[in-house]
Design a protein around this nucleic acid. Sequence first.
DNA 1: GATCATTTTTAGGTATACCTAAATCTGGGT
DNA 2: ACCCAGATTTAGGTATACCTAAAAATGATC
Lengths: 141, 141
Amino acid sequence: MRKKTTEEYIEIICLLEKQEGRAQTGRIAEAIDVKPPSVTEMLRKLEHEGFIVYESYAGATLTPAGEEMARDLRKRHRTFADLLELLGVGGETAEADACQFEHHVSPETLEHLRVFLAFLKESPDGRRCLEAFGEFRKRRG
Amino acid sequence: MRKKTTEEYIEIICLLEKQEGRAQTGRIAEAIDVKPPSVTEMLRKLEHEGFIVYESYAGATLTPAGEEMARDLRKRHRTFADLLELLGVGGETAEADACQFEHHVSPETLEHLRVFLAFLKESPDGRRCLEAFGEFRKRRG
DNA sequence: GATCATTTTTAGGTATACCTAAATCTGGGT
DNA sequence: ACCCAGATTTAGGTATACCTAAAAATGATC
């Protein structure tokens, strides 16, 4: 499979830390589908970069910088996933595509999408817009 | 900078072929910001994979498979770029983000976005929706 | 048709993220 | 306290896309 990015490691470490108190090498390895030695190596790199604290044989926990990155990623992910679902993309696919987009979006575009999402969800005009889109799709087949 | 994908090579080869009849090593290298020897290496790989015909010292041209990939990429690119611009993202940013998204979108999501784009551009309801979104953004500041 | 500047390829090397196999650590059960 | 199973790290190796420097091919000019 594809090489994993810093951001993907941070996301799964964040998840495991919440679920299990800390992120262990083996659990990370399963989650992102690489072998444990590769995880050990990456954890050292992430520690060097200041995103995690890593203790041999014990696992990793996020530093404030790591937590900020995780928060940011979660926000980006939700923006894309919610938007895609509102536009009718199936849940699984929406999640999967959000997982890709979240790593590649610029701050400017993200902000625009966030506002558009708010428009669709929170304003009467936006909700009407979604309904009209639903009709449009039906007419199209 | 980042490693370039097959798709990025195909895109620039397609562009150069249209602009200059064929894609020369040096022109590809400038365009994607790598050195010529790296391009030679990738051209061999792309030929092996069936996307281009590569002649030493002469350059590359797309095979039917390569052209299909290029067409497909162009379509994906336009979908994202147009959609982002309609939502108010600046032209440069919209293009840059489209360049990223086009490589990571699933067929299902792409199809939904394409229909949504058609809705916005071609239906009265869609155009009303865009106007309402413009108002919404103004109110937001 | 020989020369020379430019372009391209060849040769050899780097960095990164991955792997397997073997060694080492850790914590629970006796 | 010891042992052992399971987890983790160490050691060493692979693949890929990149690089620089040097060699070779191209083609424009005389």
